[in-house]
Design a protein around this nucleic acid. Structure first.
Lengths: 214, 214
DNA sequence: GCCTCGCGTCACAGAATTGCCACAGGCCTT
DNA sequence: AAGGCCTGTGGCAATTCTGTGACGCGAGGC
């Protein structure tokens, strides 16, 4: 449905269930980061699913409904949901609410980051892991930090100066190959063909840029 | 105003500020459990207050507004609010949202006996017990607290800094091997092969992470 | 077409992290 | 009061990582 497409475009990985039973199954098998539940589902209704999940799991749950009944809101939140959104909802509003719930989840741990997707490369800033085509890639701390900072600003060229400040916490930039060297090491692990980088592009005279594919 | 009366009737203790400046003052002096902010306040606006509070405090914040603009919702949640409610709002709906936010924050209703499962390791945060393959494991208080905090954020990398704050309630991080030592002791009891940890993974340069298996 | 500057690449040695251990002080129990 | 369990600290070694300098190539500019 439309919501799935919109969320995918926002960088979320989405799996959809058609019925309540299916939803419970998928939740158990896939252990999602967050659950968006339509209240009016065929089979078990959203409230009940919410309560069942809550019995054993603290996963963030957002209830979604066409009914704007106040009673519904109260019941929904009482059954353990973290938020309750009334349709129709703008994709970016839903996304903002998702991010807010994720941010708050975990007692407000700072940097409860989200994940960024670049083709088959996934940067999970919460777990601090990187995978390509599902395969985990092992990066050194500096490489990881560099990739994380780049992934926070997709498509934006970052100067060596900026990268030094963000990743190395330096301010001075000598005539140093430092950034280049790290980019090179990163490319060697992340790019399919390191000599022809598709993700981490060089911006001549400036620095580097992490491009979403196509 | 009406909201104040309604909230008081629901059993909350309420203090009201007339202007933005006053709100900031009261927040600092009274340290409330939760803040309900009207966006359109005389003086500093709600968004800004929200951001300022967030700079130093994790107190739950609910934004309240007459405008139902989507942009507003996004901006509000981005400035760190936990929820965003559009007026007019039924008192019991606001109350439900307040309770939901408090519940999520761990201040309000105590955890409804949640347990986290990691393979054959079970962390029961209600009973404060840990079992592996059904066998109870005896942990010291600190080890238990550490495991509980990790289990609350499965798959999320936590820095030593964060762990110190969560488990030890410190803020300073010397060149201390404290976290490492405790992790090591925990691993010795929890991991099948302590030298090859499958559950408590180290994230080099960051800290540790409790992974769900596979 | 040539020249210059910027970038990619590589190897290496010092530096930084982390696992691991032993120990001592503190707290609780007996 | 004595004993035992925790816990925090410091040290050590192994491992990994990082920054640097040198070198060559290729892209733009003239």
């Amino acid at each position: 449905m439309a919501i799935e497409i919109a969320l995918t475009r926002q960088g979320h990985q989405v799996a959809t269930a058609a019925t309540g039973e299916e939803a419970l199954e998928m939740w158990q098998s896939q252990r999602p980061e967050l659950v968006v539940l339509d209240v009016m589902l065929p089979g078990i209704d959203g409230f009940e699913i919410c309560r069942r999940i809550r019995r054993t799991d603290q996963v963030p749950i957002i209830l979604l409904t066409a009914r704007s009944d106040d009673i519904d809101v109260v019941v929904g939140l009482e059954s353990g949901a973290d938020d309750y959104v009334v349709k129709p909802v703008q994709p970016r509003v839903l996304d903002a609410r998702i991010r807010a719930v994720l941010r708050r989840h975990g007692n407000g741990v700072p940097d409860a980051g989200d994940t960024a997707v670049f083709g088959d490369l996934v940067v999970d800033r919460a777990a601090m892991t990187v995978t390509r085509a599902g395969e985990p890639i092992s990066l050194t701390p500096t490489e990881l930090k560099l990739l994380v900072e780049l992934s926070r600003r997709p498509g934006q060229a970052l100067s060596r100066q900026q990268l030094l400040r963000l990743v190395w916490d330096h301010d001075y930039l000598g005539d140093s190959r430092l950034v280049d060297a790290c980019v090179q090491r990163l490319r060697a692990k992340v790019e399919v063909v390191p000599s022809e980088p598709q993700l981490i592009r060089t911006v001549r005279g400036i620095g580097y840029r992490l491009d979403p594919p196509r």
